[in-house]
Design a protein around this nucleic acid. Sequence first.
DNA 1: TTGAAAGCGCTAACAC
DNA 2: GTGTTAGCGCTTTCAA
Lengths: 364, 364
Amino acid sequence: MENSGSQHLAKPSRGRPAATLAAVAARVGVSRTTVSNAYNRPDQLSGQLRDRIMAAAEQLGYAGPDPMARSLRTKQADAVGLIFSERLGYAFHDPGAVEFLHGVGEACTERGRSLLLIPAVPGAGQADTVRRAAVDGFVVSSIPEGDPHLAAVLSRPQPAVVVDSPRTVAGVDFVGIDDRAAFAEVAGHVFGLGHRRIGVVTVRRGEQVAAATGSLPARLGAGQLQHPVRQLRLLGLLDAAVAAAAAPDGVLVTERAVNARREGALGAAELLATEPALTAIMCTSDILALGVLDELARRGPRLTVTGFDDVPAAAAAGLTTVRQPMEEKGRLAIQLLLDERPRSRPDRTLLATSLVIRASSGPA
Amino acid sequence: MENSGSQHLAKPSRGRPAATLAAVAARVGVSRTTVSNAYNRPDQLSGQLRDRIMAAAEQLGYAGPDPMARSLRTKQADAVGLIFSERLGYAFHDPGAVEFLHGVGEACTERGRSLLLIPAVPGAGQADTVRRAAVDGFVVSSIPEGDPHLAAVLSRPQPAVVVDSPRTVAGVDFVGIDDRAAFAEVAGHVFGLGHRRIGVVTVRRGEQVAAATGSLPARLGAGQLQHPVRQLRLLGLLDAAVAAAAAPDGVLVTERAVNARREGALGAAELLATEPALTAIMCTSDILALGVLDELARRGPRLTVTGFDDVPAAAAAGLTTVRQPMEEKGRLAIQLLLDERPRSRPDRTLLATSLVIRASSGPA
DNA sequence: TTGAAAGCGCTAACAC
DNA sequence: GTGTTAGCGCTTTCAA
């Protein structure tokens, strides 16, 4: 392990021990301090001396102060850790997540920080990756309540910001949306159009349980603790049903294990198999909704379909949905994490959402 | 700077100096080695002692060995650096890049490494981020020839892998495709359909020059050194023209500064303004091609359009394109970087591409 | 401007 | 199974 990579002949510098700051100092005939200053406080030495030092560094193949040693000394890693509940690669396939990453990435770039993507694989439970991350702080995004990775983050002395989920973590900043109100808003729209036999496709990730289908009241109970976001949206739906004086039993909910287009199609099939008289299908993400549209296009009937997020593809598909500022969420998370300002208690920000009505929703 | 973040009351542990391994050892009454072993070689102590140590750690709020100190000692960062030519956020908006990241991410996850995204902002020239990155190796993807970030990577003792561009870096592994042959293949298809008045929309990023339009021979000269990929594709086009006994002067090339859908539309407009008799437009990316289709749909004429990459949206749009295994590229880059195996010289892999013919191309 | 001294927190040999 | 010793490479007072 120790000389991992030593068989790479790729790097010429492999083999010869990497030059150190001390070596450069010796070569130039100055102290280590001076060389350190040449890199970190160029104004502390004469330009001429600096040039000599840099020349020597170049000759010796010295690439500048070792980042690890430097970090150990300064207690600064110049990087931010971002923790996802899913495998690293998954994050890149979810358009909503991509938007969020975009915001995080830009905000980091602006502050000269790098972004460390930390794979938080559900099964393995290796909070090790968190323990070993050399970062100045963590952004924890959309992980289930009680996830061990969060515990690992909290045990570390660096600050953290939670996004979307879990909803409440003592003493930690939070950024999210009002999921309950937002979903109630689309649902109100759907009820307002006269729909009463409504299907819902939602996601319940990270659990090995099979997909489950049932009435809204029945499904509201399940997964309550682990998935506050899903729960809140279903509650919003319930709110809207109550407001519309509609029977919650008329709402059929199916849960999918993965947020994927294909799963949306399967969900639609499942719902229609259970209750062929549905006139509307609401989804907790645009991706699912697009899948529902796929399935409906295949079958023929033209039901009302709604999504959530307003990803770019939603506009193209004419999907009625809820827009949430994913990119802004990312920016804000980094801002909260890195920009210090005096304050006495953790920040809790709910960003505004808005209902976007398009062609996919219409009268019952 | 030093106590950056100390105003966060977010973390209870802030303020009280973070516990160290030594403190835990003192508490339990064992040596530091033993505590270190408890974390890194659990089989080296009795389970009972380990439990006592962990309990003490918990009490003291010790989150495990400090990653920076650990890395300094072990020379392992447990992370891989990924360098992009564009701003961090940009990477997430390019579907091809997303596929690539997906592959890189998965491969890292499998090996228990984190992924450090390193923003290589063109203008600022701050190779500093590279110098300060605590990683075990670098993947350098699609950056211009002569980019200072690459020089920074090469000066560091860690191994590196280059993807796509620059084409040749002495002593460093390379992963890419045969851009010339691949583009010659689509071009051959287009010429084969009888097209002779052909437009090309390509990208020349990172330069502050205005968009330029001109005949293929004229444009072939420009940006030659900095953008080998673009150059190779244009050469492939030339190859195909020669093979089809078509006059290269009939090919009109326009360059855009950004790889974006809107730029494709603008490119199409520019081409048609210059040469209204075009019957086909070839693009160096699907994104550009989709923009071209947008513009064409707006105007009415139905030209042959081709893309490059075969991103998911290409299939939906019926776009004829060249499929390249972006995800595989990412996986392979990590494999080359991390999986040691004996070999005497740098690896150079060109992955296979394939022409995907869809509805967007047809007879002239 | 420059240098000397001190130590960041940890792990790897090697002894016991 | 556990401890002792010796740094990893750097930055930072503080004094010259």
